[in-house]
C-alpha cells in the first residue's frame, strides 16, 4: 500500500544542512500494524507526518497504491485526509470548544455524510467505546485515557484504511495505555492498517512489525 523510496528530509540553515531523515526506504502492506521506535529527535514524527501527507520530503519517492502522492493539489490532499487516513496524537488534540459527540462527528461533516447516517455512525462508536453517557461533555471534563479514546473514535469514524498514531499513549498511565493499545489491536484485527510511533517496548509489541530509527536512518526492521 505505502511505498517510500529514498526519502530524505533535511533543513537548511545558513551554514549547514541537517538531515532528519536519510535515504529511508519503506514498504507497508495493507493490514500491517507497524510500530516505529527510536530515540528522541531521530525523525519518527517527521516520518509519520510525511506518510500522513502533513509534511513534504525533501527528496525521494512516495506512492500510495502505486500513485505518487508528492506535490498533491490541496483538494486531493484534503480528500486523502477525509477518506483514507485517520490521525491520533500524543496530546489528543481534541477541539476544546466541542463536545465529545461533536468532536467525533466533525470529520463526517467534512466528508459530507448526511444527518441520519452520521448520527448512526457516531452513536455506534460511542457505544463501542462505552462513552454514550459522556457524549455531551467537553474534553476538559474527561480523563486522559478517555480523551484519547475520543481521539481514536474521531480518527476511525470515517472508516479510514490507514491509522497513524504518534505516541498515542505518551501522556497516559500504563493501565490506560494498555486499554488504548487493546483498542488499536482490535481495530487491526478488523483489518485496519496502523502505523504507530512509541517509546514503549511493550506497546510496540502489539504490532506485527517494529522499525527502529536512529538519526534518520532505519537501523532495524523486524517482522513478527
Amino acid at each position: 500500500m505505502i511505498h517510500l523510496t529514498n526519502i530524505d528530509k533535511y533543513y537548511d540553515s545558513k551554514f549547514q544542512r541537517t538531515f532528519v531523515l536519510k535515504a529511508v526506504n519503506l514498504e507497508v502492506k495493507e493490514g500491517e500494524f507497524v510500530s516505529i521506535m527510536g530515540p528522541s529527535g531521530s525523525g519518527k514524527s517527521t516520518l509519520l507526518n510525511i506518510i500522513g501527507l502533513l509534511d513534504q520530503p525533501s527528496a525521494g519517492e512516495y506512492t500510495l497504491y502505486d500513485k505518487t502522492v508528492l506535490d498533491l493539489k490541496e483538494k486531493v490532499k484534503v480528500d486523502y485526509h477525509r477518506n483514507f487516513m485517520g490521525f491520533i496524537f500524543q496530546a489528543y488534540h481534541l477541539i476544546e470548544e466541542m463536545t465529545v459527540y461533536e468532536n467525533i462527528e466533525t470529520p463526517l461533516i467534512y466528508k459530507g455524510v448526511k444527518g441520519r447516517e452520521r448520527e448512526a455512525m457516531v452513536a455506534d462508536l460511542l457505544d463501542r467505546f462505552n462513552m454514550v453517557a459522556k457524549k455531551d461533555l467537553f474534553p476538559q471534563q474527561l480523563s486522559g485515557g478517555q480523551q484519547q479514546l475520543v481521539g481514536i473514535a474521531r480518527a476511525i469514524v470515517g472508516k479510514p484504511k490507514l491509522l497513524l498514531a504518534d505516541e498515542p499513549t505518551g501522556n497516559l498511565h500504563s493501565s490506560q495505555g494498555e486499554m488504548i493499545m487493546e483498542t488499536l489491536k482490535a481495530l487491526h484485527e478488523e483489518g485496519m492498517t496502523i502505523i504507530q510511533v512509541t517509546h514503549n517496548e511493550k506497546f510496540a509489541g502489539y504490532g506485527t512489525r517494529i522499525i527502529r530509527l536512529e538519526d534518520g536512518i532505519i537501523r532495524k526492521d523486524e517482522k513478527y
Binding site: 484534503v78 477525509r82 490521525f87 476544546e96 470548544e97 466533525t106 470529520p107 467534512y110 474521531r154
Partner: peptide
C-alpha cells in the same frame, strides 16, 4: 490555531 490545525488534519479544506 490549534483548533484550526486539528480541523485541517481531520479533513477540513483551506477553503472551508
Amino acid at each position: 490555531s490549534k483548533e484550526i490545525g486539528i480541523k485541517k488534519v481531520i479533513g477540513s479544506s483551506k477553503k472551508l
